[in-house]
Simulated assay, not measured.
Amino acid sequence: MTDSWLPSILRSPLAALIGESCTVTLVDKLEILEPHCLRHALSKGLGLGIVLGGCVVKLPQLFKIVKSKSVAGISLSSYVLEVLANVITIAYNFRNGYAFTTYGEAVFIGVQNFIITLLMLVFTGRASLGAVTGALLLVFTYSLFDISLIGGSLLSTLYGLTIPLVISSRIPQIYTIHKNKYTGQLSAFAVFNYFFGTAARLYTTLVEVDDSLVLLGNVLATIANGVLAAQMLYYWNATAPKDKYRLDTKKNE
């Protein structure tokens, strides 16, 4: 390791994140405007921030559901589709050897989405269906990581399908809000975090991942999340019509 003015307790994790060569350039030599390393460091920093944000992005939504015991204004089909997209995304990126900072938020968001999906089933009187859903998801996830069950070409096809899947997961929620003129129990923190996260992910993908499928997926996800964010702002002060948001099994599908 090159002699550095930065204490090793700080330099070591930084080097692990952005690489030794860029640490030497940006930190040790203080060449902070060197184009390649600056882009790389910015991408890594954004990626890490997105992953950390993914750890908590759905917690406000989860807490709102638990506290209110209501899933008013939340689309069950959106969450089911999103969970499927999450696990396929994780498997595709992992098996292709992409850096964890370019997709890691999908792991944490997927877990939170799955918990919320189960809560929605429980609070609409379908706990047994939740157990079956959980078991099927575990089998599907295992298959995605086993190359003998799902080969590389099939996994690429499945990942390609997540692009319309992600968009499809947003459409029911967008339609629900448009129809009700109310965002219900939808978390503003989650919506805006998603939007800014996918927008930042565009940059990290361009810098670190040479994969047109991943790039296209991030572009479309940013657009869809932008629509949800716009709806959240537009209906910010809207109130629920009386008796409109009772728990109803069919209404949340």
Rank of each mutant, 00 (worst) to 15 (best):
V27D: 09
A135H: 01
L213W: 09
L76F: 10
P13H: 08
Q61D: 14
Y79V: 05
L46G: 02
Q112H: 07
L233R: 11
V83A: 11
L155C: 01
F192N: 04
T133L: 08
L155N: 04
G53V: 12
I50F: 13
T101A: 10
D28N: 11
T176C: 12
A224W: 08
L161D: 11
W236H: 14
F145V: 06
A221L: 15
V27M: 08
R95K: 13
L76S: 02
S75Y: 01
G53F: 09
I88F: 03
A85C: 02
Q173L: 14
P35Y: 09
F63C: 13
I177R: 00
L59P: 04
G197N: 14
A135R: 02
T157E: 10
V132N: 01
S43E: 11
T133H: 02
L119P: 00
S128M: 06
A131D: 02
F123L: 13
A224L: 06
T239E: 15
G197P: 09
G197H: 14
D210H: 04
L33S: 05
G104W: 03
K44E: 13
P172G: 02
I109N: 04
G226M: 09
L10P: 00
V132L: 14
V214Y: 04
V57G: 08
F100C: 02
I115V: 10
L206S: 10
S75C: 03
I65W: 14
E82M: 03
S169R: 06
Q112R: 03
K29Q: 11
G97Y: 13
I171T: 12
S8C: 02
G73E: 12
K67E: 15
I115K: 00
C37R: 02
M232C: 05
I18K: 09
K67Q: 15
A190Y: 14
L46H: 07
T204L: 12
P241R: 06
V209A: 00
Q173T: 13
S21G: 02
L30S: 04
M232E: 05
N180M: 15
Q231T: 04
L161Y: 12
A135I: 01
L165Q: 07
E34C: 11
